[in-house]
Nucleic acid binder design. Sequence first.
DNA 1: CGAATCGTTGATTCAACTCAACGCGAGTGG
DNA 2: CCACTCGCGTTGAGTTGAATCAACGATTCG
Lengths: 255, 255
Amino acid sequence: MADYEVEQIVARREAVPLEVMIRRLTRRFELSQPAIDALLGLPYTLKDFAPGQYILREGEQVQQSSFVVAGFVYRSKIVGDGGRQIVAIHLMGDFVDLQHIMLRRADHNIQALTPATLVQFPAEQLLDLAYRYPEIGKALWLESLIEAATFREGVVNVGRRDARTRTAHLLCELAVRREAAGLGPRGSYELPMSQEQIGDALGLTSVHVNRTLKTLEAEGLIARTKRAVTVADWEGLRRAGDFTPHYLHLHQKPE
Amino acid sequence: MADYEVEQIVARREAVPLEVMIRRLTRRFELSQPAIDALLGLPYTLKDFAPGQYILREGEQVQQSSFVVAGFVYRSKIVGDGGRQIVAIHLMGDFVDLQHIMLRRADHNIQALTPATLVQFPAEQLLDLAYRYPEIGKALWLESLIEAATFREGVVNVGRRDARTRTAHLLCELAVRREAAGLGPRGSYELPMSQEQIGDALGLTSVHVNRTLKTLEAEGLIARTKRAVTVADWEGLRRAGDFTPHYLHLHQKPE
DNA sequence: CGAATCGTTGATTCAACTCAACGCGAGTGG
DNA sequence: CCACTCGCGTTGAGTTGAATCAACGATTCG
């Protein structure tokens, strides 16, 4: 199946949304037909969210796990002085709260960034499948582990890189993840975030994000049109962002 | 079993070190006797490490998973300009690289902070137990998920909190984790890190850590003697550090 | 005792923040 | 259809929190 066919499947909303999830899980593992059938047999609800709408709030009790079928989603925490830190940005194909397969209380907020469609499963039943089909369990656990690796890189990014490097790193990560998810080439993509939101993801102010993006543009590394990014010089951007994709474990094929 | 008895078990090196792991896993779940027996039957090696010694280097192939039986361990990544970011600090009772139960290549370094003793298992056999005994699988997966939650809080801490808040937060987290692990009360504990290492964990320089710790001390929130910390005013420190322990999910009892 | 490491302190610099103003495009309502 | 608002991006000027640079004291250890 061609890379971009996924988008078409999703475009047709009536197409089984669980296909997107199956595709994701089989990115790294073969799943047997019985396992796939079991996943397809999961009860689920499909929900649409408007930009900014809360999918989940910190402190809430949760009994379900969600998956992005369309749109962008982000996760954030609020600190004491009112500041916000975005801890993750999710594309189509990402699990957004796999942790709630076991954790019963949300420790952060999840919101739609753009209009977004999510599939939600009863956490208990998904967990159950993880144990009845070890291949499913492995695939889901692996998703958790790679997400954790991405958080580690996030700590490094905001902790030890300056604004320019940090920003370039984020652009690289999104480009590579998008490409790996089969959503299009890394050379040019939509980045539907305000500069304020980018700042909240990078631990910077919107003003400084603005200046930093303009610097990267002036250096010929990227081009910008509205909220889309064109990577003008991938190798240059990669170097500027101190980016190596090892932590995404894209080529992980356990066994 | 009393809280501090764990230390004694560990002190007697001949006592089965796997007991420490069993204790950790049963902190949240009951494990059946067959599951416990299976864990106790795992082949393992016990290794001592000197301060600073590498347990694992970024880029290495890994086939095993480790657990801290004694001492302190930290995990770090190095950035392009030579800076280091410590992404996690581990106490006795913590898994330090549970991710290698499935990820075959290390994406960061793991080093001993103090003299430390680790138990190492063949990853494959541990994974195998996770599927033969769903209770074990759940307990291990849950550890991964909570670790990820800790990384998220780490992103928030370095991304959106100032030096004083950040530092107080770290002190609170270590106090609470130590207490939860049954290693002693939160009021006073050893923090066997140089100010340089604290800085690398917080995204600060050692000079600024020094000034910040002195500020916290001058404010009457902590007292310091060598590398031990006494929390003089827990509620004050908690507030200074914008600390709430929800993200540690200490009272998580799924089902 | 000498070397090395770590903590402490002061002086200075700088990266990022704050505050403020203005332009622009997309809605929206009269 | 135009005036208005509102959110967002842009830019400048001034401030500040943390870094840098540098020196020195304390402690440990061979």
